[in-house]
Design a protein around this nucleic acid. Structure first.
Ligand SMILES: [Zn+2]
Ligand SMILES: [Zn+2]
Ligand SMILES: [Zn+2]
Ligand SMILES: [Zn+2]
Lengths: 162, 162
DNA sequence: CTTGACTTGTTATTTTATAACATATTCATT
DNA sequence: AATGAATATGTTATAAAATAACAAGTCAAG
């Protein structure tokens, strides 16, 4: 299985990467009967422009550039929709949002956040999540949601600094 | 080894629990030559009042009640000091802070956050952290810091609801 | 007692997020 | 097509969280 993080952290055809993800997202909304309205679609496109997480107000700035009104709820509502339906993830450490790179596929993302180039990748986090569930289970705690996030240096930035 | 989360999530002598942790914290600042000034000490005491995480402004309110000025930097500076020296942890999902229950002991906390009673416990997160390191290592990412947080229901609240 | 590091006081601002309510659109049902 | 419920958007206002910047005070070492 191809690991997304490998792609994210290296030079790749991002136009294709973005396009493919957008198409998968469109399939999902079709199947689930969701409404990918203009703001929502544009918001997803904005998140897909790079592998960096964007704050709500950065997203808002770009929405404004596309003709939408400069009002926080415009961005937050679109972002909440995307997050609620698995098309984007919220990165708590950054108070920011990133497009999901595997929309529709059940996955347990563990986020790797490069503090040099700000790229955010989803690593396969099943093992991490399992360890978390075990730790919780040991004390009778029932997990509903979890955030697994790590900050550090991606391969490229690591080399650049060395 | 006693698991803190077990204690946190059950009725316990919290006065003793708080006192013991405060004493351990004092030993640490002594050993490390840190200055546990009045605001800092009071801030730690405030965090130790319960096992719930507190937002900076809640802490500030209580500092005001103790005679300190109502200015955000007062709380943030004290909280930052405690976090920097391992006497408190920042809970990103809650934009809040919790006293560290094992100050001075090297540990990898995985936080269990009850969304019913708001209690926050540190579960032993070594296995979780190891899984995270492995996932990162697989793609050449070098981790510096990580947040491992889960939201759900603690044993007590789980029973209460059932 | 002076220097330099650290700590606090204080004002102001920035950044992030939500409440609340009016209007409009969509879509299934009459 | 008309009705009405659900969903989505427009808009104003405010709340909540965090930091910038700089002046003034404290303290211990030399
Ligand atoms: Zn890409
Ligand atoms: Zn990088
Ligand atoms: Zn306790
Ligand atoms: Zn609980």
């Amino acid at each position: 299985m191809r690991i997304d993080a490998e792609r994210v952290f290296s030079a790749h055809d991002h136009a294709a990467c973005r396009q493919a993800t957008l198409e998968r997202a469109e399939e999902i909304v079709a199947v689930e009967g969701l409404r990918l309205t203009p703001v929502r679609r544009r918001t997803l496109e904005i998140l897909l422009e790079s592998h960096q997480a964007l704050g709500a107000y950065e997203v808002l700035d770009r929405l404004v550039a596309s003709g939408f009104a400069r009002q926080p709820p415009v961005a937050y509502r679109a972002l909440d929709f995307l997050v609620d339906h698995g098309l984007a993830h919220r990165i708590r450490r950054l108070n920011a949002f990133a497009a999901c790179m595997r929309p529709g596929e059940p996955h347990r993302p563990a986020f790797l956040i490069c503090d040099t180039c700000q790229a955010v990748a989803e690593a396969p986090g099943t093992a991490v999540a399992d360890a978390m569930l075990a730790a919780a289970g040991a004390v009778g705690f029932e997990i509903e949601r979890m955030s697994l996030e790590a900050v550090g240096r991606c391969p490229a930035c690591r080399e650049a600094r060395a």
